[in-house]
Design a protein around this nucleic acid. Structure first.
Length: 679
RNA sequence: GGAAAGGUAGCUCAGCUGGUUAGAGCACGGCACUCAUAAUGCCGGGGUCGAGGGUUCGAGUCCCUCCCUUUCCA
């Protein structure tokens, strides 16, 4: 029976670039959708740009452009990144669209008509200078409990306390720096509590993973509160019909954006959207999300759908967060890898495979361990999988380029195809990690087969040419099965493999019959090995010691030796290897300026023979900015970039220093040019 | 503060409802092979399964306490 399935992943927000955390979700979703399509099901994957809200409005203001211009630009970047990772959205829309407005108004109207919308006054922080109400995150101040300074208005990162912005000691607006005042304003609320029985029944229907159900139980226990769905002007979003000056809260119209995107898809393809949305729809609706937005997707969203007379989600699949080498990925910690940064350096399928190899059905966090990533991809994809085709192709070519007319070991082939239901079940239940393990175990078996039959030895005897071709044919067929199993994860490689095999890899049951007596195209490498050095470049800036956050960059050369190698007592002896870890370069100073707010730092723009670097250097006490332009200084070019209050410093300029307060810049002699290596 | 998940070989992880000498991949050592992108195959070293109690004929697997990590809290 053909299933009809609508799938979504969370909408990326239009105020910043995609990072690998977005990508892991998109990949989990994309693999599932591709798998469903491979089975022959009618699956559609829609997503959209999440465009509304204060952060977008503020960011656009700060860039001096309209919100529309901002979201158009960011959406284009997001699309390019998704495409770069081979994420096959059937439709990618935007929440700032007529379709989304249609559904937002429609659903609000129905909720209101059914009496699910209430109205009451709310006291909220107001920035008189900026002329607007402030979201909690835009108010900062001292934590009322632990007295930690500079905390967000909703919770304290230091002690974990949660509170209201009004509880903060010495609150300040992050927009203007002024002290907010407290003003009353009428807000609209969605009466979530009324839906508790419906939600309990929905949760019991098996739409959620066990840990998520447990979380829901906790929320039910705490009691469901009304949800504030309105915001005051100025706000970038949809004005609420019948409530001038009030706008829908971004989180109200964001999930509705799924439907807006679906509508655009249906309009384009002539589909009947009601078939998807009617209460008794037999089309499945699957949402893929991160655990941070569970509340919106497991409570508000089903309730809003139900209250609007629409169907509820079939399932909400929650995944964990991504960590990098065990560390939380975040800008402030410097372990932030953007999708773009990855794509500029490495092939998308390497990460697709690695994430698949680590994604299970649970909500545990997924670690991208860079060393493991390199080893795993090189070993599994190149050493095992691709190797099978690579080592057999030559024998087929020499034997005439056409596969043998029968398999020498049909039982082994049968063993491979017999794994199909098991692997399908694993894909279906999102246990990609187990699926990858099973597939790689089969790849081992295929290599063992080739090894046991030694076609290279047989080939020495011209009389055994048929035997050689038979073994190679077996190997190619085993490879074909594996490649089909991996097609949801590695669509590009599957495509190249199909070209090699001269037959499509488009249907799950295509492998029922082996490929016999047909020609092969010349073999071309299907995947390249990863270079550990390039992989290491993914990490932008390792965590600097917290106490050094606002200290100027150190200028003592000795401190530049890799920290781990230096005991507190002193540098000690290092090996040549240690030294060669340093990438020292001649760099020409192009611009130099004083850093406002710092009495020690100069901001230097350096030329390295075509590429530019920005470095903050603590030499203001010894050098005037203007005197530096044109000098050729010595730069540690591979020092991890470091975030400072004033920007990111991408290296360190070497200086000598003694007992006086001065530092003395090192320079290269005349004739040296920016970018030259120093050794 | 409340809650959840996790702590298993150097690294990344499997180990279902408790049951023979705890597994895989990578890394490491040895051997073989040379068709293949220094790829492959075979053999091997390596773990008191976070700590301490308890239940049981028997616990990595159940219970309690503690330690550590991570996450969630509209």
């Amino acid at each position: 029976m053909t299933r009809r399935i609508l799938v979504t992943s969370a909408l990326p927000y239009a105020n910043g670039p995609l990072h690998l955390g977005h990508i892991i979700e998109a990949l989990q979703t994309d693999v599932w959708v591709r798998f469903q399509k491979l089975l022959g099901h009618e699956a559609r994957y829609v997503c959209a740009e999440d465009t509304h809200g204060t952060p977008v409005m503020i960011k656009a203001q700060s860039e001096g452009i309209t919100p529309e211009a901002l979201i158009a630009r960011v959406a284009a970047e997001h699309r390019a990144d998704y495409q770069g990772f081979l994420v096959g959205h059937d439709w990618f829309h935007t929440t700032h669209s007529p379709e989304n407005r249609h559904f937002t108004d429609l659903m609000f109207g129905r909720l209101k008509a059914a009496g699910h919308i209430t109205q009451r006054s709310v006291r909220q922080a107001y920035d008189e200078q900026a002329g607007m109400f402030l979201p909690d995150r835009f108010v900062r101040g001292t934590c009322p409990r632990c007295k930690a300074p500079d905390q967000y208005g909703d919770s304290c990162e230091a002690c974990g306390a949660t509170y209201a912005p009004a509880d903060l000691i010495d609150p300040r607006s992050t927009l203007s720096g002024s002290t907010p005042v407290w003003r009353e304003s009428e807000h609209l609320f969605f009466a979530l509590g009324r839906f508790e029985p419906m939600l309990r029944e929905w949760v019991a229907s098996g739409a959620l993973q066990a840990p998520v159900r447990a979380k829901l139980a906790e929320w039910f226990e705490a009691g469901l509160q009304d949800w504030d769905i309105s915001r005051d002007a100025p706000y970038f979003g949809f004005e609420i019909p019948g409530h001038p000056g009030k706008y829908f809260y971004v989180w109200f119209d964001a999930p509705i954006g799924y439907l807006g995107s679906l509508k655009a898809l249906c309009d384009a393809q002539g589909l009947d959207i009601d078939a998807f949305l009617k209460v008794d729809s037999d089309i499945e609706l699957h949402h893929f999300i991160g655990k941070d937005i569970s509340y919106f997707h497991t409570l508000f969203w089903p309730a809003v759908l139900h209250g609007s007379g629409m169907r509820r989600p079939t399932a909400v699949h929650v995944h964990g967060f991504l960590t990098i080498d065990g560390q939380k990925m975040s800008k402030s910690r410097g372990t932030f890898i953007t999708a773009r940064r990855y794509l500029e350096r490495l092939p998308p399928e390497a990460l697709r495979y690695y994430f698949a190899a680590k994604l299970g059905p649970g909500i545990d966090d997924i670690d991208l361990a860079l060393g493991d990533f390199t080893a795993r991809v090189n070993s599994d994809l190149v050493g095992k999988l691709v190797n099978i085709a690579s080592r057999c192709a030559g024998f087929v070519a020499k034997g005439g380029g056409v596969l043998a007319s029968e398999l020498p070991d049909p039982a082994l082939y049968g063993e491979f195809t017999a794994a199909a239901p098991r692997i399908a079940a694993l894909y279906e239940q999102l246990d990609y990690a187990q699926a990858m393990r099973e597939i790689m175990a089969l790849a081992d078996r295929a290599n063992q087969y080739v090894d046991a039959h030694k076609p290279w030895a047989l080939a020495k005897d011209p009389a055994k040419a048929a035997e050689v071709l038979a073994v190679a044919t077996q190997g190619v067929n085993l490879f074909r099965v594996l490649m089909l199993y991996l097609a949801p994860v590695l669509p590009q490689m599957a495509c190249k493999a199909a070209a090699f095999l001269q037959t499509p890899l488009a249907r799950w049951n295509e492998i029922d019959a082996p490929l016999l007596g047909t020609p092969l195209a010349p073999y071309e490498p299907l995947a390249q090995r990863l270079d550990a050095k390039i992989v290491a470049e993914l990490v932008e800036a390792p965590l600097a010691p917290a106490t050094a956050a606002v200290k100027p960059v150190a200028v003592k050369p000795a401190a530049a030796v890799p920290a781990a190698a230096v005991p507190a007592a002193g540098p000690g002896t290092i090996t040549l290897d240690d030294f060669t870890k340093l990438d020292l370069r001649v760099a020409e100073v192009i611009e130099a300026s004083e850093v406002e707010g710092s009495d020690k730092l100069l901001k230097l723009t350096l030329d390295l023979g075509g590429t530019r670097r920005t470095v903050f250097s603590g030499i203001r006490g010894s050098y005037a900015a203007a005197s530096l332009v044109g000098r050729k200084v010595v730069l540690i070019a591979n020092l991890a970039p470091r975030k400072m209050r004033f920007g990111v410093s991408e290296g360190m300029v070497l200086c000598a220093s003694g007992s006086d307060d001065r530092v003395y810049l090192l320079s290269a002699d005349d004739g040296a040019a920016g970018g030259m290596a120093i050794s």
